[in-house]
């Protein structure tokens, strides 16, 4: 089930979307990403970049998610950027996020900054796209 959870400690500049960690929900996240990016005045090209980038980040996390896990997508908006942090619970250890993979290359071509972390049983990929001036 798709849920939009307002974070009580945050201002209205954070949106968190949680979906089951399954490929069938990637479309939901792409649509949400495009909708949010459009409201932030990103250009059509940048919206498309973000749509692919979020999809790639999530698709990289799905294979290492624990069974029946939830995939969380946290969109944080600042004056100059949109940062999306995607994360799943995982039992993978070490640096198993595929930094040399095709997905990662696509992601790095589309976002201004990317970063992957794996700790505390949580795998996360964060990407940042600067907002149009």
């Amino acid at each position: 089930m798709t849920q939009v959870i307002p974070e009580p400690w945050a201002t209205d500049d954070v949106v968190v979307l949680c979906v089951p960690a399954a490929g069938a929900y990637l479309g939901v996240l792409r649509t949400a990403t495009a909708g949010l990016a459009a409201r932030l005045q990103f250009t059509l090209d940048e919206i498309e970049d973000l749509r692919i980038a979020v999809d790639e980040a999530c698709a990289m996390l799905l294979p290492i998610a624990t069974p029946d896990a939830e995939l969380s997508c946290r969109f944080a908006v600042t004056d100059d950027a949109l940062t999306v942090e995607t994360s799943v619970p995982t039992t993978a250890s070490g640096s198993r996020l595929p930094a040399e993979s095709f997905s990662w290359q696509v992601l790095s071509a589309l976002a201004d900054e990317i970063d992957a972390t794996l700790n505390g049983g949580q795998a996360a990929i964060r990407l940042t796209k600067r907002r149009p001036k």
């Binding site: 792409r30 692919i52 999809d55 790639e56 698709a59 993979s101 095709f102 997905s103 696509v106």
Partner: peptide, 8 residues
């Protein structure tokens, strides 16, 4: 839409 899975 196409992503790296589709390209692969």
């Amino acid at each position: 839409f196409i992503d790296s899975s589709g390209l692969s």
